[in-house]
Design a protein around this nucleic acid. Sequence first.
DNA 1: AGCAGGAAATGAACATTGTTCAAGAGCTAT
DNA 2: ATAGCTCTTGAACAATGTTCATTTCCTGCT
Lengths: 213, 213
Amino acid sequence: MALDKEEMSEKVLAIAEALLNEGGAENLKARTIAEQAGISVGSVYNLFADLDEVHRAVNMRLLDRLGATGLAAMADLERQGVTDVQHRILAMAAAYVRFVEAHPGSWPAVLAFNRGRATRPGPDAYDALLDALFDIVAGVLKAGDFGLDDNRRALAARTLWSSVHGIVTSGYVANSNSRQAEEIWHQIELLVGVFVKGLEHGGAFAHAETKPE
Amino acid sequence: MALDKEEMSEKVLAIAEALLNEGGAENLKARTIAEQAGISVGSVYNLFADLDEVHRAVNMRLLDRLGATGLAAMADLERQGVTDVQHRILAMAAAYVRFVEAHPGSWPAVLAFNRGRATRPGPDAYDALLDALFDIVAGVLKAGDFGLDDNRRALAARTLWSSVHGIVTSGYVANSNSRQAEEIWHQIELLVGVFVKGLEHGGAFAHAETKPE
DNA sequence: AGCAGGAAATGAACATTGTTCAAGAGCTAT
DNA sequence: ATAGCTCTTGAACAATGTTCATTTCCTGCT
């Protein structure tokens, strides 16, 4: 009658996500999970190798959901017939901001996660999920008529999205009041506006002579 | 004959920085510090309230040094008579990248630090150090002849620097091989090129109609 | 029904951590 | 010398991640 192994894993992940959201990474405790899930500590370790694996699984779920949200936002605009690149990028960024705001505790944990482990096996499911986000942006850029080949467009997508990401995370390093939310959005508007204008005028090809050694 | 309280604090911070750099935040242990500093655990707590305070102090030192590095880089260009905005921003970004690469373990710890503590007393010494970085960028932008008032230039500086920051941190989430370093620099070049071009063409004033609620 | 065998759950036990604090050591001024 | 003060010490406590021998539970077979 009780829950399947699969179902119990999901229950544990849901609990873990809530814990992370409330108190960040240091709030993810084996005993708390066990208690809330109605199982013993040992059973948690039966489902997952260690707490890192739980944390990773939660993060992947979040990234997955974020991707789905972004795709949905793009599909909405498609349905409304919006093709303007700037609008679509801003909508994508807005989806990102909303997502981060909806997960105030767990999103920082996503970002801070991989730090510290020096070398990892190789290409990761993590990276795959991030690439999915980049691909959405690249798809939007493709609609704009900048003279970009595939490589350069992919680079532009990664650049733009990493920038949005930086704005959002920088913004939430400080105290998170509504002032911050406004500042973040102003920055994103400026970034996207300047970025699109810059691409239109060939700024992507303006090479500098100085590189660091 | 032994060390001053001040000197011992500095010794502890130097040890702490090394520990953070080697193994990230979870490598900052009271007992390790005590052992390496040749004092007892209790004495560490005499110098600092808790490990968080040690961590914060190390981070502030790092931010301070980063600011000094940036200022030095700008002064160098000044001496060489380089006034081109794009060159100067790229030099600033290069200084940032080099700094992050020089502190592979402790820099992530700087970024991940403030997360988790919900509300803080108010404006922080932390923020002040970050603002110093923004100010340098704003100073460079002032040299360029974009039609920006002070507020808008400050916003542009924060946007640009947060974007650089995002590129650097996104780049180092994944495995850090030399491929990554190149990718990061390509993104920065693209960002700065597009940003400057965009500002020149008034992209900063292109308002979008859609805002998230 | 009874039973054997394996899988899963349990929670006591261990190691490691941050942090505290009573006891002592060292210093200084009288 | 001694009282008083500060600083140091390291043992002790609580909280944590993780392990593993034991128990419990189920499943298939006779």
